[in-house]
């Protein structure tokens, strides 16, 4: 065993002063492994989703608990779950999937606030947070809390209600979990019945908050009750036997780190022995492989808007 490890990681006469792991044939074998392995895993995921798939557990119950926990930590009153906002969130999520867009406003110009009104929620304050590609409710909440604009929405004292939609669907060719979080406060809407003044403030592309001084435009053409009945499931739970994301990430990390270790070991040993062969190029490859690891991190993470 020790001999094999030396042959793989230590440059010496037996491997022609080139660690076996970095021989062209070994590298080609790994390339073939990654191509065939990727295709096989994909096939298994499609055929046996209960065995292999992305483990997902995002529910509105968990989300509201986490949001209120964050608010409590910051000395704010908890938000109440609003079925109307949940419907608005569901309609927004379905609109994004059907029209294939990832934005607060739809390509045909429909704003989030129109979904509020259609759901029968007449607001004074309203806000929206979006997330996609996250696998747990905690990851979603943490990502929102890490962004100043989303955090401001979550910790705003202007809101009293919240509603969530967690749906899966194909967005831009990618099967993803979409989370829509709608905030609102309609307390004053019932008090002041006329005139409307809007000010849309967007501190970044990531979040929008709208303030209405007054608007009572009850939606007479829509039955909120029927909409509420058609409310979507409150979350997405998919717990396959093996989590493909963890599996591939662990395999990739292990193999790439093994290569980096071999490159470092070869560079140090040959440098000490004052021998330079291919090790001369090793720092280039180490930097490149590190950037590949970072690419994996970037590609695998969820996105908020």
């Amino acid at each position: 065993m020790k001999e094999i490890l030396h042959h793989l990681f230590i440059p010496r006469e037996s491997n022609n002063y080139r660690v076996k792991l970095l021989h062209q044939t070994t590298l080609l074998l790994f390339i073939v492994f990654f191509i065939i392995g990727g295709l096989l895993l994909n096939l298994t995921k499609t055929k046996y989703p209960s065995v292999l798939g992305i483990s997902t557990n995002v529910t509105s119950e968990q989300l509201i608990t986490l949001v209120n926990q964050k608010r409590q930590e910051n000395g704010l009153p908890p938000l109440s779950f609003s079925p109307e906002l949940a419907v608005a969130a569901r309609d927004k999520a379905n609109d994004m999937l059907s029209k294939n867009y990832w934005a607060h406003n739809s390509p045909d110009g429909k704003t989030p606030w129109e979904f509020f009104k259609e759901a029968g929620y007449n607001y004074v304050y309203a806000g929206e947070n979006l997330a996609r590609g996250f696998n747990t409710s905690l990851d979603v909440t943490n990502a929102w809390m890490a962004s100043p604009t989303h955090r401001a929405n979550m910790l705003s004292s202007n809101y009293s209600d919240v509603g969530f939609a967690v749906v899966t669907g194909n967005l831009s060719g990618e099967e993803t979990v979409l989370v829509v979080e709608e905030f609102g406060n309609r307390a004053l809407a019932a008090l002041s019945p006329q005139g409307e003044s809007r000010s849309l403030s967007s501190s970044s592309n990531n979040s929008q908050e709208i303030t209405l001084k007054k608007e009572v435009a009850v939606n007479p053409n829509r039955s909120v009750q029927s909409s509420l009945k058609a409310s979507p499931p409150s979350g997405v739970k998919n717990l396959p036997l093996v989590d493909s994301l963890h599996l591939t990430t662990n395999i990739v990390n292990f193999i790439i780190l093994m290569f980096i270790l071999a490159l470092i070991s070869e560079t140090i040993i040959l440098e000490r022995r004052k021998i330079v062969s291919f090790a001369e190029h090793n720092p280039d490859h180490i930097l490149f492989l590190i950037s590949v690891l970072l690419m994996i991190v970037i590609l695998g993470r969820g996105v908020i808007l």
Partner: peptide, 14 residues
């Protein structure tokens, strides 16, 4: 490097 990314996207993210 490219096949590693392919493996991750195809096998991991599907």
């Amino acid at each position: 490097g490219v096949t590693v990314i392919f493996f991750f996207l195809k096998g991991g993210l599907g």
